[in-house]
Structures are given as structure tokens and as C-alpha cells.
């Protein structure tokens, strides 16, 4: 991988490094505490690479074998990813073999950075996005490995450390807010999500929220004539 791209990408991924080391470690610890071999969580982090989905998979693995139920839950928990590709259709155009990995590695954090942070002018766009994706993936694998191998050696109280991800999204949100004069898309996201969270609760609000956001944009697009 190009050194320059990694150097340009690394500072943007530091919050992810902290968050993933923390979350990955908790995930590794959780899997070990359920009695799975040490390589299970590591292989899963390499092949699946999603936080919420892998935590959900722990529940699946300790209950009865129900493949269809497993598939259904995976699709529901990951439903938000269905929409991440849409803004990236254009960005990933012409990336060739890289495209497969860029799509595979599109977790919330990777998507957020690749979608909002433009690479410096002297760095290739594809190389930059690859660097972000590979770095985030490595952090996730490293965190998982740490958790699964070391066990509970975390010596300081990490309560609240998970806020690092919230803070990352807030910072990216502020950046987008300042860059675009039209704040309606951003507000649509917040209002629809809060509304659905209140109506459906934390476990079930993802699909309704996404649906409501799309519906709002559809109606607004129709009004503007962007949708025929």
C-alpha cells in the first residue's frame, strides 16, 4: 500500500483506533467468556468486520442452531448498510479489485470517514480510501486478538470510553454542517431517527428510521423535481 496514503489516512482513523481497540477487546473477552476457542472471534473479525453484528452473533452462537433466524437477525441488525452504498456508488467507480474490499470493509466508521473526508490533493482517492479501510480493519482485528488472548487485564475503568465513537460521528456531523448551507438533509436524519427511537425503542428503530429518511427525501425530491 502507498505510504503517502497511509500517512494521510492515519490521523483521521485515530478515534477509530481507540474505539476499536476498546470494542474489539470487549468482544474478544465476551467470546472467550462464553467458552469459544481463541481463534473464533479473531476469524470472525477478519471475515465479518462489524461491531453490532458480531456482538449479536455471540447470542446466536450460544443458543440453538437456527440458520434462518441467524440470517434474519443479521439482515435486520445490518439493515443500515443497505443504504451506505448509495453515496459510494460514484466514489468507488473504476476502483477495480479494490472496490470489492472497499465495499466489504464498509463498517459505520470506515463509511463515515470515506464519505466525508476528502484526501489531500497529492494523494490518490482510491489509495486513501483503501488505507482508511485497511487501518480500521486492522484495529478491529488487533482489538479482538488482544481481548481474546489477554483476558481481563484491563487495569483502568473504561466505563464511558465507547463515547469515542459518538464523538467521532458528532465531529463529522459538524464538519458536514459547516460545509453545506442546506441543513435539511442533516436535520432529516436526526429528526427521523429520534422520532423512530421514541416510537420503536433502541432495539427496533433502525429499519423504520431508514425508511422514514428515504421517504422524506423521496417526497422532497418529488417537490424539487429531482424524482420523476
Amino acid at each position: 500500500m502507498k505510504k503517502k496514503a497511509v500517512q494521510a489516512a492515519f490521523p483521521h482513523t485515530i478515534p477509530v483506533l481507540i474505539g476499536f481497540l476498546f470494542m474489539g477487546t470487549s468482544y474478544g473477552l465476551l467470546m472467550r467468556s462464553k467458552g469459544f476457542p481463541f481463534w473464533y472471534p479473531v476469524v470472525m473479525s477478519v471475515l465479518i468486520f462489524t461491531g453490532s453484528g458480531q456482538f449479536m452473533a455471540v447470542e446466536l452462537l450460544v443458543s440453538m442452531f437456527r440458520p434462518l433466524h441467524a440470517l434474519f437477525l443479521t439482515l435486520v441488525v445490518n439493515a443500515r448498510y443497505l443504504f451506505y452504498g448509495i453515496p459510494m456508488l460514484d466514489k468507488f467507480k473504476g476502483m477495480g479489485w479494490k472496490k470489492v474490499y472497499l465495499i466489504f470493509g464498509m463498517c459505520d466508521e470506515t463509511f463515515s470517514i470515506n464519505c466525508t473526508v476528502p484526501p489531500p490533493p497529492d494523494v490518490d482517492k482510491g489509495a486513501f480510501m483503501m488505507a482508511v479501510t485497511v487501518l480500521d480493519h486492522l484495529y478491529w482485528i488487533a482489538g479482538t486478538t488482544l481481548g481474546t488472548l489477554l483476558g481481563s487485564v484491563v487495569r483502568f475503568d473504561t466505563t464511558g470510553l465507547d463515547f469515542v465513537m459518538t464523538a467521532l460521528f458528532v465531529v463529522l456531523f459538524v464538519g458536514q454542517w459547516e460545509e453545506n448551507k442546506d441543513h435539511r438533509p442533516a436535520l432529516t436524519g436526526i429528526v427521523c431517527s429520534v422520532l423512530c427511537l421514541i416510537l420503536f425503542g433502541g432495539e427496533n428503530f433502525i429499519l423504520p428510521a431508514m425508511g422514514l429518511i428515504i421517504l422524506c427525501f423521496f417526497l422532497d425530491g418529488k417537490r424539487k423535481g429531482a424524482v420523476s
Binding site: 443500515r80 443504504f83 451506505y84 448509495i86 453515496p87 459510494m88 456508488l89 460514484d90 459505520d108 463509511f111 463515515s112 464519505c115 466525508t116 465513537m165 459518538t166 460521528f169 458528532v170 463529522l172 456531523f173 458536514q176 453545506n180 438533509p185 442533516a186 436535520l187 432529516t188 436524519g189 436526526i190 427521523c192 431517527s193 429520534v194 427511537l197 433502541g202 428503530f205 433502525i206 428510521a209 431508514m210 429518511i213 428515504i214 427525501f217 423521496f218 425530491g221 429531482a226 424524482v227 420523476s228
Partner: peptide
Amino acid sequence: EPPAFITYLGRVLPYAVMGFLIVYCLRN
């Protein structure tokens, strides 16, 4: 070429998704 609505969605969705992700982090 994707339909006009998808292209439009691709332009506005990043802003909405970032708002969604903040709420998603705070869901519990």
C-alpha cells in the same frame, strides 16, 4: 446510470446518515 432519485439520494444521504449514526450510538 442509476435512476435520478438514487443519484439524488446519494447526495443527501451522507448528511442524514451521520445524524442517524449519532442517534444510533445513543440508542441505549
